[in-house]
Design a protein around this nucleic acid. Structure first.
Lengths: 126, 126
DNA sequence: TTTTAATATAACCATTGGGTTATACAACTA
DNA sequence: TAGTTGTATAACCCAATGGTTATATTAAAA
């Protein structure tokens, strides 16, 4: 699998809220399939399918404990995804900066004399 | 669209090599649909579909210049994706660290007396 | 005013994705 | 040994994805 294929399967695996929740759960330690399934209104086979997607992407691995097959997080593909994203950091930081500039300007017009804003004006989540 | 939906559509949009290549192209400036289509062995409507996916994810926007509808990069959703990934940084850095430790140990056994390795041992791309 | 260029949309097709239920299998427990 | 628990797999359904060709729309150029 080349880097591009790896990014395909990594991003595809991350494009599902159930799978992201599973990764979040595994961030606090390994867990069995049953344990992973509990929070979801979904059958056990559905969870097993999600786990297969995550495993094919290399985002989790499978252990063995009696009948259990505990999964644990394998974050390395996330490093590659992160590296890809990094190439675009300048672009989103530029847009944050434009937002800052705007907010500062508005603020100045509205309350001249008050202390200037400090730190970056983080935009609200949509 | 809540944050989770936004991540869904962002990651899904990124899970395709054609769309990632389009974003890479747009990183060096806006471009028309035709210009974007050139590098790909794919019909114009196929490209238009990809552009629609990127636009729905908020990753590009559409300008207007005569018959042309030039697209430009809108990197803000990438900031959110990056923020999500950041939560897992500790995990991939831990695995890099384990790899470092291993390499250093191997190196020591193999060539005792030579200078120690500096910086992080970056794993090869697969 | 007709033609050409750039883009969008419709209709279609094959494949994949995310879910289901039913069933198989492997490993503990009584 | 029989039952129970944990997980995987098979077969199926429906919706979504990624491509196609053909056609519509819009604006410029001749």
């Amino acid at each position: 699998m080349n880097t591009s294929d790896q990014l395909d399967t990594t991003f595809a695996a991350l494009a599902d809220p159930t799978r992201r929740a599973i990764l979040a759960r595994l961030a606090s330690g390994e867990a069995s399939v049953m344990e992973l399934a509990v929070p979801f209104a979904m059958s056990q086979p559905a969870i097993s399918k999600h786990l297969k997607v995550l495993e094919r992407a290399g985002l989790i691995s499978r252990g063995s404990d009696a009948q259990r097959r505990p999964r644990r997080l394998e974050a390395q593909p996330l490093a590659e995804a992160n590296e890809w994203l990094e190439h675009y950091r300048q672009f989103w930081e530029a847009s944050f900066q434009r937002l800052d500039d705007l907010l500062v300007k508005l603020k100045r017009n509205e309350t001249a004399g008050k202390p200037k804003q400090r730190g970056r004006a983080k935009p609200h989540k949509q």
